[in-house]
Nucleic acid binder design. Structure first.
Length: 440
DNA sequence: TCTGGGGTCCTAGGACCC
DNA sequence: TCTGGGGTCCTAGGACCC
């Protein structure tokens, strides 16, 4: 089983820890420049304030109901987040920090019968140690755990909900919307509806290959996940693959000097982030935007990328390059609203990637050194995988593609082969293709 | 007047190699 | 008039997430 822990109204809860007077009162937290409402207490939610609402549209409602307003304090939230995460880690060693306020737990070593009690206990301790209330959803896959968490927030006053494969789950899936499933948003929901799939239950019952054609392997995985077949394992991604720092301006800016000033701040911050994760970057991207909400203004949105001669984490070097890009991008006579920098092509300074750790991308299942799951592949390789399966005692599902005529199909085969090769690079099997073919 | 910021993954298809 | 077969690497753009 997997668990998903989600902090309730996280930013608001953080503010409440340090100001208990805010308890049971309506509270909202604002974005940069106090522009949007990005967190709401339950009380504020029930007053009808939507997520991401522009503050100016709700001024009267806020004043009328005496809603408390806070500018965001990310340093505080970051600190509170790590306290919550280390509390969880105390109980569950295998976990994945998914976002600032969410973590997946690997509960497979826990006794299923007592899992619910255990979750209550964890929840209680986290609150005691950090002051942050959390909800915990438990399910056979990450996708179902995510759903269980939603159920916990909605229907369970004690904040814990355990979902198992049952008639009950079937009923739930029939009653909720496609968009309630993690990974499905409006665009995909519409596509699914266009082929007659109207709710998650129908998605669960559908032909995975058909879904793959419609919404890629990501959608195909969802089908299996909804059936209780785990396709997504816990990931311990500590290092970011790209680092962005950007801000909107409080006022419009049209001169290069001020843009440069802002860019300099962002670059310094980005370089700090880069060094704090011990990475080097190979490329820099700078982007500038005018105010997209002012339809009458002339619009100009552009970005530029430049490589570094050598990988670097040096602020000065990055800064010079950033200015160079800005020189190319800048056009006079526009009112600029936003500028940002993205560090790309990040590499680890310390190479601690072991040869045993093979992650296969672009497939249904991921396989790694923990053998949590196994990769899928084409029919051509079915027997080989079957053999591996027998030896490893794991379940495999297959996605087939045969015939090499069209370009796209060739690509498919190519990918399958690539997967297989990665597979055989694992410590358990030969890298010799002759051997592989003999097995099949 | 005022409208956030920071990420990841997947796919098709082009460039290029033997 | 015909125009192989197999393979790697890269990128833009489009999804999705919190």
């Amino acid at each position: 089983m997997y668990g998903l822990v989600d902090c309730n109204n996280f930013y608001v809860s953080c503010e409440r820890v340090f100001n208990p007077l805010l308890r049971n009162k309506p509270v909202v937290v604002l974005s940069n420049n106090d522009g949007c409402i990005i967190a709401r207490s339950n009380e504020a939610k029930s007053l009808g304030i939507p997520m991401g609402a522009p503050l100016h549209l709700y001024k009267t409602l806020i004043e009328k109901n005496k809603i408390f307003i806070y500018s965001s304090n990310y340093t505080l939230y970051g600190d509170m987040s790590s306290r919550v995460m280390s509390s969880l880690n105390y109980f569950v060693p295998d976990m994945e920090i998914y976002s600032i306020d969410e973590a997946f737990l690997d509960l497979r070593k826990f006794n299923e019968k007592t899992i619910s009690d255990k979750m209550f206990e964890i929840r209680q301790f986290v609150y005691q140690w950090t002051g942050i209330p959390v909800s915990i959803g438990v399910g056979p896959t990450k996708t179902l755990a995510k759903l269980a968490n939603k159920m916990a927030k909605k229907h369970s006053p004690k904040g814990v909900y355990v979902l198992t494969m049952s008639e009950h789950l079937r009923n739930i899936l029939s009653e909720i919307k496609l968009e309630d499933i993690w990974g499905i948003s409006k665009g995909w929901a519409n596509r699914l509806k266009s082929i007659g799939i109207n709710n998650p239950f129908e998605l669960q019952q559908s032909d995975p290959r058909q879904i793959r054609k419609l919404v890629s392997v990501v959608g195909e995985r969802m089908v299996y996940e909804l059936r209780g077949n785990s396709c997504l394992s816990l990931e311990n991604i500590v290092d970011k693959k790209s680092i962005t720092v950007s801000r909107s301006f409080g006022h419009m800016i049209d001169d290069k000097y001020n843009l440069k000033q802002a860019l300099a701040n962002h670059v310094a911050r980005a370089a700090e982030k880069l060094r704090s994760q011990d990475s080097l970057c190979g490329e820099i991207c700078v982007f500038i935007n005018t105010n997209r909400f002012r339809k009458k203004d002339l619009q100009y949105n552009n970005s530029g990328i430049l490589p570094f001669d050598d990988l670097t984490d040096n602020t000065n070097i990055i800064m010079k390059k950033a200015f160079k890009v800005l020189d190319r991008l800048y056009r006079p006579n526009y009112n600029y609203k936003k500028i940002g920098v993205i560090l790309l092509d990040l590499k680890q300074r310390k190479k601690d990637v072991t040869n045993n750790d093979y992650i296969i991308q672009d497939n249904l299942f991921t396989y790694n050194k923990n053998h949590k799951n196994i990769a899928n592949t084409s029919d051509i390789h079915m027997k080989i995988l079957d053999d591996i399966n027998t030896k490893m005692g794991k379940m495999t599902l297959f996605y087939g593609s045969q015939g090499v005529v069209k370009h796209s199909e060739r690509k498919q085969i190519e990918k399958d082969k690539w997967r297989m090769r990665s597979f055989y690079r694992s410590p358990f099997y030969t890298t010799n293709w002759a051997d592989i073919l003999r097995v099949s």
